Amino acid sequence: MGARCGPGHRIGPMPRQDGDIHARILDAAAACLTEGGFTSNRMLSAIARRAGVSRPTLYKYGGTLDEIKEALIERELTAYLAEAVPIIDAARWDAGYVADLLAFLIGRARAHPLLSAAVRDVPEMVLPWFTVRADITVARVTALAAPVVQEKIDRGELPPVDVPALIDVLTRIVLSLVFVNSAGVDADDPEDLRRYLRTVTGFVALLPGRDGGAAPAASAR
């Protein structure tokens, strides 16, 4: 069992490099917040103890609590999206692949301990990033994923789609299922989630084109 955010509990000795100190502060913040610290009024002291640094060092390398939270969110989101890059890079233009990608992203988000803790403790702070402020989340996803998708288009592995629009739509599907189960799916059941997403994405292939025929589909590679 990991150390808790109480007096005397530290992750280890303070590293020498500035970047290591900052990373250690973020690690400590993630642990303390996950353990129920989102509503604590002594969070900075808990983070400093957990990271093994003094309060002045905490302020120097981490900043205020809001700055630490923002840096932590940025780090976790970047790591989350980086996990998806190899899957995006292996993309095929078919409903099964898209469903598997979306299921992976939804499952990882629903199981993320820090996100789960934030929803538990401060839903009013988290939920706007998935609803009224979703455009900011979509922009971050687009910045990372768009170059990968565009490169596959340039290599002829995907059809010449509108990349920002594609990422926007897929990201909003993920956001809509991170917290809420649809009536037709148990989002905590990976197989049921994939089945639902394959059905939903499969509808696109059945839509008529402008000439009244089926919409063109690129062959899987």
Score class of each variant (00 low, 15 high):
residue 61 Y to Q: 09
residue 63 G to K: 10
residue 68 I to T: 08
residue 68 I to E: 08
residue 70 E to S: 10
residue 71 A to P: 14
residue 75 R to T: 04
residue 76 E to Y: 01
residue 81 L to S: 04
residue 83 E to T: 07
residue 84 A to E: 11
residue 84 A to Q: 09
residue 86 P to K: 01
residue 87 I to G: 00
residue 88 I to R: 10
residue 93 W to F: 09
residue 95 A to P: 10
residue 96 G to D: 11
residue 99 A to D: 04
residue 101 L to Y: 08
residue 101 L to M: 03
residue 105 L to C: 14
residue 107 G to Y: 03
residue 108 R to P: 14
residue 109 A to C: 04
residue 111 A to I: 00
residue 111 A to L: 01
residue 112 H to I: 01
residue 115 L to M: 06
residue 117 A to P: 12
residue 120 R to Y: 03
residue 121 D to A: 06
residue 122 V to Q: 04
residue 124 E to L: 07
residue 125 M to S: 03
residue 126 V to N: 01
residue 126 V to C: 04
residue 126 V to E: 03
residue 129 W to L: 11
residue 129 W to S: 14
residue 130 F to Q: 07
residue 134 A to D: 15
residue 134 A to P: 04
residue 135 D to M: 12
residue 136 I to L: 11
residue 138 V to T: 14
residue 141 V to M: 09
residue 143 A to T: 11
residue 146 A to F: 11
residue 146 A to Y: 12
residue 147 P to D: 05
residue 149 V to F: 06
residue 151 E to H: 15
residue 154 D to W: 00
residue 154 D to A: 12
residue 155 R to I: 01
residue 155 R to N: 12
residue 157 E to R: 15
residue 157 E to S: 12
residue 158 L to N: 13
residue 159 P to L: 00
residue 160 P to K: 08
residue 166 L to G: 06
residue 167 I to Y: 02
residue 168 D to Q: 01
residue 171 T to R: 07
residue 172 R to T: 11
